[in-house]
Simulated assay, not measured.
Amino acid sequence: MFRPRPRPRAYNAPVSFTVRAITLDLDDTLWPFAPIGARIDQVLHEWMLQHSPATAAMFPVEAMRELRERSFRDNPHLHHDLSALRRLTIAEALQASGASMDLLEPAYEVFYAARNQVECYPDAIGTLARISARVPVAAVSNGNADLERIGLMQHFAFQLGSRDHGYAKPHPSIFHAACQRLGCGHGEVLHVGDHVEMDVAGAARAGLRTCWINRTGAAWSHPELEPDLEFDTLTALADWLDAHLADACRPTSGTYA
């Protein structure tokens, strides 16, 4: 399904435009995150039952989730680094329960292994291969997924996470950094993602073209900005690229290292 949306009147942009590269969100764009989050909670709790029963007793799944949410609220300076926040949450749970801090890194690795066990949307992998064969694709994410561990890195020019960059979406600098590495002007890059503010509004303010992947059929909710494109699957985006970018070419000046 394709629903073209005009950008704010100041842009006065047509539905058909040049796309020399794509930046792509990961969580809830390539795969749903909710099943991952639930599995992480359960796997980490089961590990604590075996290796630190006192921690598991003091922080069952719901209590550990509440601790994680509190750590997020209390540490806004770490919002770009979800790995640091996860380590902080585990460390607080271990300390509060009198457990050895030697368990911190093994517990984190249990979390991280579960975090990278993703199940992509049915259309995602095949469509990603189609899109990356047409234009360079860079992953731009606030999450801490590892495309190498997941086995999808071959479809991407590079992965730019907020932890490495130092700022999270919707900060414009992370979008601009991706454009620079791609060797493209801001208006030549299409950012694709599911989140109204983090992906669409953030990228639009940074000067990128935007595509909202709206798999749930939700109504657009931003009061000021709208995406250039809206699709309910990545396949529909690939079809749009095939129809509109017959003359698209890869940038000649990109440096993806």
Rank of each mutant, 00 (worst) to 15 (best):
H195K: 09
L245E: 04
H51I: 00
H244N: 06
P8L: 13
A139D: 01
H171N: 05
S83R: 15
V140Q: 01
P32H: 11
V196Y: 00
Q180K: 15
Y108V: 07
A145S: 13
T233D: 04
L88N: 01
D74Y: 11
G126I: 13
G143M: 01
S97F: 08
R65T: 07
M198P: 00
H45W: 08
F158Y: 14
Y256R: 02
I125F: 10
E46R: 14
L103A: 01
A107S: 13
G193F: 03
G98Y: 02
H195R: 13
E224T: 11
W220A: 13
L208D: 05
H186F: 08
D81Y: 10
A99G: 05
A257T: 10
N116I: 03
D81W: 09
P122V: 15
S173K: 09
D28V: 00
N12D: 12
N144Q: 06
H165F: 15
P4F: 03
L94F: 12
N142T: 06
T235M: 13
H222K: 10
P6S: 02
H79G: 02
E188W: 07
L241F: 10
I213K: 07
G98L: 01
F175Y: 08
H165P: 12
A177P: 09
S52K: 06
Y108G: 06
E230C: 11
C184W: 01
A157C: 02
P35N: 15
A243L: 09
V137Y: 03
Y167W: 03
M64Q: 14
G143N: 14
V61W: 14
H195G: 10
A10K: 15
C120R: 12
G166Y: 11
F231N: 12
A34C: 12
V118M: 11
F17E: 05
I36N: 12
D194Y: 01
P60A: 08
R181E: 10
D194V: 05
N12T: 09
A243M: 04
L82M: 13
W31C: 14
P14R: 14
I22E: 02
A133H: 10
C184A: 09
L208E: 04
Y11P: 03
S100M: 01
L225V: 04
C184N: 01
I150Q: 15
Y167C: 01
Q117S: 12
S52Q: 01
A63P: 12
N142C: 07
